[in-house]
Simulated assay, not measured.
Amino acid sequence: MSNIKYILGHFEDPDDMMHGIDKLKENNISIYDAYTPMPIHGIEDKLGVKRSRLPIVAFICGITGTFTGFSMIYYMMVHDWPMNVGGKPAFAFPDFIPIMFELTVLFCAYGMGIAFFFRTHLFPGRAPRVMDLRATDDRFIIAVDANENADHDKINSLLKDAGAVEIKHNERRYVSYE
Rank of each mutant, 00 (worst) to 15 (best):
V175K: 10
Y6R: 08
V85Q: 13
K5S: 07
I31Q: 06
I155L: 05
N84Q: 10
R119Y: 12
N3C: 00
V105I: 13
F96C: 02
D151C: 02
I63D: 02
M1Y: 11
V57L: 00
Y110V: 15
I4C: 03
N28L: 04
G69S: 02
E171I: 09
E148D: 14
V85W: 07
H79E: 14
G62Q: 05
A150Y: 07
R53P: 00
F93H: 03
E26I: 06
M131L: 12
G113I: 13
Y74C: 04
C61D: 04
I97Q: 05
F116G: 12
L47C: 09
Y174F: 15
D153R: 14
T36C: 04
M76E: 10
R53V: 00
F70E: 07
M100A: 01
F107I: 02
K50P: 01
T68W: 02
G113H: 10
Y110L: 15
R129S: 00
P124H: 09
M112C: 15
W81R: 12
E44A: 13
G69R: 01
S2F: 07
P124A: 15
K5I: 02
I31E: 08
V85Y: 13
K5G: 01
I31D: 10
V57S: 03
G9I: 08
T120E: 10
T36N: 09
D95Q: 11
C61I: 04
K88W: 05
D137M: 12
Y110F: 15
I4P: 01
F91S: 03
R173F: 08
F96I: 01
H19W: 00
F70D: 04
P82M: 02
S2V: 01
D16E: 14
K160W: 07
P94D: 05
I29M: 07
L47T: 05
I21P: 05
C61W: 06
P37L: 01
